[in-house]
Design a protein around this nucleic acid. Structure first.
Length: 200
DNA sequence: GAGATGATTAGCT
DNA sequence: GCTAATCATCTCC
């Protein structure tokens, strides 16, 4: 059931992103199991993606993780407080990554409530990339973790979405990036209450 | 070594 | 809808 390493090492980061929707993401942090299935993800297509840390082939200590072979986690801090969970794909030297933006929680919900400091379950518990990471207990300590290991992993439970249920939208703010601006990099499940804002 | 910045979120208007 | 909060990392001097 656990996704094999081959799932992550394909070169087509966009099709991997599409296939990630409906896959289950689990984490076991401090011995506590939490998880859910992915409903929103965004591809970061390496050196041609202006929004990527590795745009233009930039290589820094932080982005080293993106250049690794697919199948590891890439966690980084943004705006000082939000930790983001990415899945590195493709082969070594190709800085492809997929940002997990939203999941539907299924396992360990009480623990997620504690981590998010929320009294009751609300739709926004895993809405947005920062919230997903926090609810799952992901932090920079879980950077470069092997996704076929026992800390963070993905499973296929046979859940799939039709093309009608999935919406792919072009990224915004890259209008001058020629044909790349037209590519649909962001995938999400329509009308899912856990998906962040424009969910139709 | 100092300054700018950002793939966000929450809370107020 | 819009704006403030907040800090590790990158870049330039």
């Amino acid at each position: 059931m656990k996704l094999p390493l081959e799932f992550y090492t394909h070169n087509d980061v966009l099709s991997i992103t599409r296939n990630l929707l409906g896959k289950y993401l689990f984490t076991k942090i401090d011995g506590i199991l939490t998880g859910g299935y992915i409903v929103e993800a965004e591809a970061y297509n390496g050196i041609i993606d202006k929004a990527s840390h590795s745009y233009g082939g930039r290589q820094t200590p932080r982005t080293q993780t993106m250049y690794m072979q697919g199948g590891v986690s890439y966690v980084y801090l943004c705006y000082g407080i939000h930790e983001m969970f990415n899945i590195v794909t493709s082969t070594e030297g190709e800085p492809h990554a997929i940002l997990i933006r939203a999941i539907v929680p299924t396992e360990g919900i009480p623990e997620m409530l504690l981590r998010r400091n929320m009294p009751v379950l609300k739709n926004n518990i895993t809405m947005g990339p920062g919230s997903v990471a926090q609810a799952l207990g992901i932090s920079r300590k879980t950077n470069t973790v092997d996704l076929t290991g026992d800390v963070i992993w993905l499973e296929d439970h046979g859940l799939t979405f039709t093309n009608d249920q999935i919406k792919a939208v072009p990224r915004v703010g890259v209008a001058y990036a020629a044909e790349d601006a037209l590519l649909p990099y962001r995938f999400f499940v329509k009308d899912c209450k856990y998906v962040s804002k424009p969910n139709k």
